[in-house]
Amino acid sequence: MASWNSLEVLKLLIISSMKNQKAITKDQVKHLAKLANLKLTDKELEKLLPQFTSVVDFVSKVQSLNTKNIPETSQVTGLENIFREDLIDKNRMFTQDEALSNAKKTYKGYFEVDAIFEE
């Protein structure tokens, strides 16, 4: 039982069916981290690169799907234009204290954020 690993089998089957993708560079991953607002050290980036590459290779499988003339689906409810009256429901309103209750930094009843402009 210990020697039997179905995921290994699946992995080999699926990966062997994929063609090689263009290699992803460390700079690309660095740029992605910036876009995602994630601060990663050089060491972390280096560790992430091969993992990220293998995951991208894996999902690149979709490119071999024949999707000619196939429209995209973004949701499955079939619902469209769901409106409600633009009314205030006081039962659902936070008090100022409640709204600020989880903030680390507040200032006179407001959220305090770091300055984004330099002096």
């Binding site: 196939i70 995209e72 689906t73």
Partner: peptide, 13 residues
């Protein structure tokens, strides 16, 4: 990637 997958989603449905 994203658009292709959304089309794949239609195929799956």
């Amino acid at each position: 990637y994203y658009r292709k997958a959304q089309k794949g989603r239609t195929l799956f449905i």
